[in-house]
Write a protein that binds this DNA or RNA. Structure first.
Lengths: 339, 339
DNA sequence: ACTTCCACGCGAACCGGTTCGACAAGCCGG
DNA sequence: CCGGCTTGTCGAACCGGTTCGCGTGGAAGT
């Protein structure tokens, strides 16, 4: 079951078997066929560990994702799935690492023990010690999201600033004047989560530009928090007629809160935001939102990483995506505000 | 940065360094301290590939999950997360393999190239060629779900038969007489998906036992399919007053269909089923359902696999879980059927 | 017939760990 | 004073591949 056994049966040396299989040196057609036949018969496959040791490449990429403390979102799942599939298409396996911080044991294992050739980082923060650490080491990695200093790195990201602004303009165009912003949990915002930060930023700037009256909220990643958040919004300003959210998991709760308050969507109240389309279509009425192309982002991230692995001297490349707003059924013209 | 370098700096042999770090043979306190100091200074970590080659263990487990063709469900995500965390607690990494069938390339890589010490199989079918293949090879694995011949294998599973039956009894106790069953997509049922098959089975038997009039449906894994399915249900038998579903992803669509049809939940129509609690709490009104303990299952699966890896001769162990129905707000007594 | 060249294949070294057998030094009891 | 035992360390072999340099035999060239 090892290469020596194949060599013995074929009556050739181990190196010849290696060359026959890798094609890195010419081998006569006869011996190549003989070797191939034996390999097929025995179902021989070379050991990944031995190969990795010999040529220094593991054919594995690490996917660093946040620990379970945060609830997972549907977007993350689509993302993981597409990364694994795209990696398989390039003959890479995917090793999962549930890492928060750079000092994390699991993260150290990936790098220190050289288990992976490169890494994809999810859930980027504006100041991200993992990203900085990898960059300092020159370790091949691609970030999903932009840090505060993105120019020199490889990344695939959504332009959250532009997306939040697009939502604001959409609502303003419909005549809404008092709009709330429902962000991810406060803890994520404080620790500098890029989507939460840039989204808030884009929302605030665009709202100022359009002269809207706004309030911004942080909201836990679950339905109950969403419902509570909506109650606060209507309590703080009952004249609010629309909201923008980045918080998928709270969406159901927001809807529930609106139903409880007797606000009909979209007649009395408009809802929009940035959400994976699977979620946008699950709620009733379906959410008008900028659809997060999670699967495409996963694929792009793998493509970028593979390119970086193949050409270690290649200059950084980036993809900054701005998906359009899909018009569904949750927004409409502003009516007469209830007071 | 390799063990020879450490040995050189400490003025000892490579084997001494190895023993000092692993503790498999006694090393004098002096030399151990000297070696440890150098290791700490240099931040040395042994190469995973070399270690795996030498001792035949990769410290990695494979997680075989379905390819993206199927939509992922929230349950799967919780599951993956908990597996990764539980594995990390046992000092194992997790390698993802998006495999459907036994002949799959990615699956072959896991086994043939000996990338993993053991595997966890998700999305089990009653006749599962992957599970049989692994069993035939004696390869350490734990299934999430039961095949048709479960007695000799290691698994963690829900008792879908009992859960579906519990839903039926719950509805029957509330006085419902005409009940629909909304299953996973037909293609999954036909290919022998165990949750779809056993759930259908448990539903049918329990309904017969209670003398209910039932209809069973397959439904695509998305909101639009759920809505369409509900329309068919009311079209086929407008007197239907309740449904049981296993289909998380269709749930939002089912609710939407009910709203469109003017059926109020739970006054006019009761909904229950087997669903991860995160989803059950997202819809309005919150779903009375048997909550799938995905995170717990992931943890148990890893525990079982680690036990099997540590004691290769251990007899098979299983966990068959029957979570209780969480009473929320989506079921109520049967009213007068609308005709 | 004698070089020249090329195509093929071989042996050995190497990747970076682990592990086994052996050996030296120190201590003990007889 | 000598044999036996323990403790600590070393050298070498091994895991299963890849890769480099060299040797050989046959065909081609003059």
């Amino acid at each position: 079951m090892n290469i020596g056994e194949i060599a013995r049966r074929a009556g050739v040396s181990r190196s010849t078997v290696s060359y026959a299989l890798s094609g890195k040196r010419p081998v006569s057609e006869d011996t190549r066929r003989k070797i191939q036949r034996i390999v097929d018969e025995l179902g021989y496959q070379p050991s990944a560990s031995a190969r990795a040791l010999a040529n220094g490449r593991t054919s594995t990429i690490g996917l660093v994702f946040p620990p379970a403390g945060n609830h997972y979102t549907g977007m993350q799942l689509d993302f993981i799935g597409s990364v694994v599939e795209a990696a398989a298409a390039h003959d890479y396996d995917v090793l999962l690492s549930p890492s928060g911080v750079d000092s994390d044991r699991s993260f150290q294992r990936l790098l220190g023990e050289r288990r992976v050739d490169g890494a994809i980082l999810m859930e980027i923060r504006l100041e991200d010690d993992r990203a900085e650490h990898l960059a300092a080491l020159g370790f091949p990695s691609v970030a999903i999201g932009r840090t505060a200093h993105p120019e020199d790195g490889w990344y695939v990201a959504l332009d959250h600033t532009a997306l939040a602004a697009a939502c604001v303009h959409h609502l303003a165009d419909l005549g809404h004047r008092r709009v709330a912003f429902v962000n991810r949990p406060e803890q994520l915002l404080r620790t500098g989560y890029e989507s939460a930060q840039r989204g808030l930023d884009g929302f605030t700037k665009a709202a100022a530009e359009r002269g809207l009256t706004v309030r911004t909220y942080c909201c836990g990643d679950d339905a109950a928090a969403g419902q509570a958040c909506l109650e606060r919004i209507l309590h703080d300003d009952p004249a609010t007629t629309a909201l923008v959210t980045l918080n998928e998991a709270a969406l159901g709760g927001l809807y529930r809160g609106l139903a409880h308050a007797g606000r009909h969507v979209p007649r009395d109240f408009s809802v929009t935001g940035v959400v994976a389309n699977r979620w946008a279509e699950t709620v009733t009425p379906q959410l008008t939102a900028a659809d997060v192309p999670a699967a495409e982002m996963g694929r792009l991230a793998v493509d970028l990483l593979v390119e970086r692995l193949d050409h270690s001297d290649a200059p950084p490349r980036q993809h900054l995506l701005v998906p359009p707003i899909s018009l569904r059924a949750s927004t409409g013209p502003a009516g007469v505000p209830q007071t």
